[in-house]
Computed example of a mutant assay.
Amino acid sequence: MKSQENIKYPLILDGGMSNVLESLGCNLDHPLWSAYLIVEDPDMIVKAHLAYLNAGAKCITTSSYQATLEGFERIGLTRTESKAMMLRSVELALKARNIFLDGSSQNKTIYLAASIGPYGAFLADGSEYKGRYDVTDEKLKEFHTEKMRILEETAVDFMAFETIPSLREVKILNQIIADCKKPCWISFSCSNEHSLNDGNSIIDAVKSISSNKKLFALGINCTAPRYISDIIKNILPFIQDKKLIIYPNSGEIYLPETKSWKGISDPVTFQKMASEWLSSGVDIIGGCCRIGPEHISRLNFLTS
């Protein structure tokens, strides 16, 4: 594991996993979404990681966003096999990093972040876009703790708690992150410049967790780009000594009923907006849903 103290900022993240997999011909119409390929076609995961590394990403996120023990068990895997699939998500990222570094003539540092999505991702019904779950606090804490315990024992550098849509889930994660063995970041998903997806204040969410010593970064992901500049202005005074992380989606609208996207993604516009965000104080930058390698490659023009 590399120390986050040695990171050269701004740090460029990768983009969305699912859009690259779909471009490679993968069918993601499955309750486990892209995590299904950890089981069925792991080489495609490696190819997706490599697409971002070749585009200039310095930190790639594991394919474990929607990977859970319960989810794998639902498709017939045993508990032991399910845990092995969770660990495989890290192995695939490591494999991609090794392939990339072996083919590079330069001495590069590539970081790995273990993706831990919200409880709503496990439900696979679009709940992460609402942040309202019919589940107890105890169940939420058990869900996240179990996944964290498995992934924190791997060779990842960071734990990425991402697309968190509700203040309730943030407060529960604050307890869990305090006991994590690895440096963590948390990123919230917002419905506008003021609110998390559940309607609570983004400022309240930041205030509730910004003093956590295990967090080295916090910010926003899977949020429409048009809201990002105002969100940065709203939360920057409250992030204390943390790094500010931003990786929005493309601004397209996801339709859970058809599992499709509505709208257009433009890398040139993304680059212009990213330039503004970096000028506003963003330390870690990348993309989420529908942000691809072409978008990430343009970030290198801004950070070189």
Rank of each mutant, 00 (worst) to 15 (best):
S105D: 07
L167I: 15
I291V: 08
K182S: 02
P237A: 00
V170P: 12
L218S: 08
A51W: 04
L123E: 03
V135Q: 11
Y36K: 14
K83M: 04
I202F: 12
K2Y: 05
R298H: 13
G286S: 09
F301V: 06
S297G: 09
W33L: 04
R298W: 08
A93H: 11
G15D: 07
D43V: 01
F270A: 05
L236M: 09
T269G: 05
T223V: 13
L151H: 14
L53R: 01
S208E: 11
H49A: 07
L101Q: 11
I75W: 02
I284N: 03
I164M: 02
G76D: 02
K95S: 04
G120Y: 00
N27D: 15
I99S: 00
P10Y: 11
S265D: 00
L77A: 08
L21V: 06
P225H: 08
Y9P: 04
K233I: 02
Y119V: 07
A93K: 04
S89N: 14
K2H: 07
L236H: 11
I245L: 00
V156P: 03
E146P: 06
G219M: 14
T80A: 15
L167H: 07
L167C: 10
S105R: 13
L50E: 13
L94F: 00
K181C: 02
A48H: 10
F72P: 15
I231T: 02
I231H: 03
P225Y: 12
G56L: 10
E142N: 14
Y254K: 13
T62P: 15
A57S: 15
S195H: 05
I209V: 15
N200G: 09
L50G: 08
P42I: 00
F216G: 00
F100D: 03
H144V: 06
S279C: 12
I38E: 01
R79M: 11
I264M: 09
H30A: 12
E294H: 04
T303D: 11
E70W: 02
G126P: 10
I245K: 05
L69G: 03
I12V: 08
K139D: 08
A160Q: 12
D204I: 12
Q175W: 03
N192F: 00
F161E: 12
A274D: 15
E138V: 09
S89A: 15
E70D: 06
S187L: 05
Y227S: 04
Q4V: 14
I264Q: 07
E73G: 05
P237D: 01
E22G: 11
A55G: 09
K58W: 11
S189P: 00
G131E: 00
I235S: 02
I164T: 01
A224V: 05
C288N: 05
E252T: 01
V282T: 07
A224D: 15
